[in-house]
Write a protein that binds this DNA or RNA. Structure first.
Length: 292
DNA sequence: GTTGAGCGTT
């Protein structure tokens, strides 16, 4: 994506370990999917912390928390996939001060000295033509969404139940549904409860359309003062492991080859080269079809 | 009457 530095030796070592775990892959084939952010490996070496950026399209509006990339930066494209038409970010150092623009170069946004977590960020739009994030359903639809739609010849744009972690114990089904209707039509929203009818603090949400799902999956929201996480359920994973790669294979080659299965969000080939790589998709169904 | 990582059926 947009790396300012190279992976540390420590990080590369970790990747190596995971290659041994899943090393039965044939050339050019994918083996073993893993869901992100959990389980065996890929736990932070140091700079790989899970930083979220609180973003809204206009001050005081609904906020969404976008995850940074491995280097703690944010790509313009991932901002744009969330807020279509956004060209950058700004923040207000103090309540009565002017907006300050976030450093941006080569399609990559860099955190202010105080860090991403110090502020709430507002999207910049070219020549002040503000767009709300719910407007991108038809005429303002983002390029990435259009691409996904054209790629989804069969079933790779269906919605699935998303798991919602970290809910306040007081949140009801109706409140959960209402919370997500900000992002699209909600087909189902359910808080899991125990025998006594008490919330277990998590639930499931199903959107009517894929675009709405894209808006929140793998992101965080603020509900009742708590950060709730929206993820694909365990059995769905978005990342595949590529074994026995040829050295001359570039990230672009991988993108091109695996691009036919769906929108790719990340391609990572550890350097120095070890014959392995990872491709992460936006949609887990892409992984399903590859591994099928 | 409490809790705070996780993975759901009925």
């Amino acid at each position: 994506m947009c790396r300012r530095r190279n992976k540390t030796a420590l990080e590369s070592e970790k990747e190596e370990v995971s290659s041994e775990v899943e090393s039965e892959a044939e050339v050019g084939e994918a083996s073993g999917a893993e869901s992100e952010g959990s389980d065996t490996q890929e736990d932070q070496g140091e700079a790989n912390m899970n930083v979220f950026i609180t973003v809204c399209s206009e001050e005081g509006g609904e906020t969404i928390e976008l995850p940074t990339d491995e280097d703690g930066n944010l790509t313009l494209s991932s901002l744009e996939s969330q807020f279509s038409g956004a060209s950058g970010l700004s923040y207000r150092p103090e309540d009565d001060e002017e907006l300050v623009s976030v450093a941006c170069s080569e399609g990559c946004l860099y955190p202010p000295d105080e860090g991403w977590e110090a502020y709430i960020f507002v999207c910049d739009f070219p020549r002040d033509s503000k767009r709300k994030q719910d407007d991108d359903s038809e005429e303002n639809e983002s390029k990435t969404n259009k691409r996904i739609r054209s790629e989804s010849s069969d079933g790779d744009s269906e919605t699935i139940d998303l798991i919602v972690l970290g809910l306040p114990y007081s949140t009801t089904d109706a409140e959960l549904k209402k919370e997500f209707e900000e992002y699209g039509e909600v087909k189902m929203a359910e808080v899991k409860k125990d025998n006594q009818g008490k919330s277990k603090g998590f639930g499931f949400v199903r959107f009517a359309d894929y675009e709405s799902q894209l808006k929140v999956v793998n992101k965080r929201l603020l509900v009742g003062g708590r950060h709730i996480e929206i993820k694909f359920p365990k059995q769905f994973s978005t990342k595949i492991f590529i074994g026995r790669m040829k050295e001359e294979m570039t990230n672009d080659d991988l993108s091109e080859y695996f691009g036919k299965y769906g929108e790719i969000t990340d391609v990572y080939v550890p350097r120095p080269f070890k014959g392995i790589g990872y491709v992460t998709f936006e949609n887990p169904l892409a992984v399903q079809t590859i591994l099928a």
